[in-house]
Design a protein around this nucleic acid. Sequence first.
DNA 1: TCCATTCGGTTGCAACTTGAAACCGTTGCG
DNA 2: CGCAACGGTTTCAAGTTGCAACCGAATGGA
Lengths: 152, 152
Amino acid sequence: MVKRTSHQSADCLIARPLDAIGDWWSLLIVRDAFDGLRRFGEFQKSLGVAKNILSARLRNLVAHGILEIVPAPDGSAHHEYVLTEKGRGLFYVLVALRQWGETYFSGPGEPYTFMVDTRTGRPIRRLEVHAEDGRLLAPGETRLADFRQQPE
Amino acid sequence: MVKRTSHQSADCLIARPLDAIGDWWSLLIVRDAFDGLRRFGEFQKSLGVAKNILSARLRNLVAHGILEIVPAPDGSAHHEYVLTEKGRGLFYVLVALRQWGETYFSGPGEPYTFMVDTRTGRPIRRLEVHAEDGRLLAPGETRLADFRQQPE
DNA sequence: TCCATTCGGTTGCAACTTGAAACCGTTGCG
DNA sequence: CGCAACGGTTTCAAGTTGCAACCGAATGGA
């Protein structure tokens, strides 16, 4: 997608995930996959993206092990795209993005939706970052550490 | 950045944050801002991005209220870019991305870094999604609900 | 004081990417 | 069979990216 070979950031563990995802469309595809969408046509209708772009993004997501192609559920000759375990790991990224969106982008009067617990239908809690000892950490109360600095 | 006016997804609360951020570079800029970088040149050196691109991304982040320009700390005539409250809200997105990266992209033998509590130097906990009643929710155990379906 | 260098960009331009539309083989279906 | 829908690929114009050159203001040094 992007030529990341040239720009070796100190922190590849943000850049490489971003590179694997590919672009914004891909993340919206993953979101739709969480919503149960599986077929090329479903994604295309939901996102309104050009078919060649969708095709390329799906191929990239499969190549990076985020989606996988499963033969067919109903014996149809068409295949479907489903999230892998790795792909389901992006759940937390989507929750974080969505809560940020809820906080800063939900204008009044808009069709406001939010995430609820499927079982109870009640809203989920906000994400929190906790220290090992359980203390709540605010943005900025963390830093990056080399593994050698860590007691194991 | 991207013409999102035409593709009205059912769930704007993922798409609009993505649109506000702009692109991958922008998220790396925000990450660097969390690491304490503030100056144009610092971002440029850290990311290795072309100056016109960096310039455009910084302008966009400021326009969306994620960064703000502050005059100068040391009386210098140059200004600096710092995270706003809204920008600091992206912390959870970065933590989620990074934990996903740690899980699936840290090859053995690589310079492995991870997030630690600044106070204790110990690793932070993994993000979790909790229901209102505190139950731990796995990926897929949530759905989107319209506010009208919600008891208040 | 004067010159050189760094900082923080803008501009020009070639290469690449994106996206709308047309096309196309296969599948499902009456 | 015939025909529409599915799941793409191809084409091509328009837009974006990124390298490199440039540039003015601020800083530093002799």
